[in-house]
Amino acid sequence: MTNALAIDTTSEFLGLALMKAGRLAANHYEATGTEMNRSILTVLDDLLARAALKLEDLELIAVARGPGSFTGTRIGLAVAKSFALVQGLPLVGVDTLRLLAAQGEAAEGECFYAVLNCVRDEVYHAAFRWEGEGPQPLGEIGMSTLAALPELVEEAPVVLRRFPPEQPGHEESLAKLNRLPLRHPAPDCALLLSEALRMHRAHGGRPLPPAEPIYLKPEAFRKWKP
């Protein structure tokens, strides 16, 4: 697999990366907030032009499928699915905790947790083991409060990223965690490319599971009456 596109719109960062002939040809991220819907295609067009790549040259599309911002996740998936449909390309969805886990500086065979800030004091978490080139998921993605996290992960190291603005009042919980350093300070779309390619290789030509969004949270919290 040599030419590929990666799209990550699950946070307040617009992330796009291109691989050309097996080498990273673009790795773009910028804080766009809710503006990413306006800019995503013009930024992509610019990146493709600078890399001298066409959409028709692509062989795979990688997309971050959450958990994260609901609307943001849908924007990335809407673009990725539309490209995959018209170009007839394989689409590989990667969850955001795996992407964060890939950023951790874990030792070979080390088990650790990836933890991503959700809203307020809530976090998404998942366990991984570092195997060779990257993280292998050990279980499902869960949710908990930041305060409950130290007990949940016990002594295991944690790769953690919290979206700004930093939530006050949780320094105590954070101080109890054994935090692994991050290789990259921000969401890194190059890692989305490499994780997607790893997953694609691991499937050895068999069809990948459909790239659907991961929301984890329900769409409504109570029944209402007009």
């Binding site: 995503i40 849908r74 539309s82």
Partner: peptide, 10 residues
């Protein structure tokens, strides 16, 4: 936004 993003991508 779903419709708009799909239409723009097409």
């Amino acid at each position: 936004l779903v419709g708009v993003t799909v239409a723009k991508s097409l």
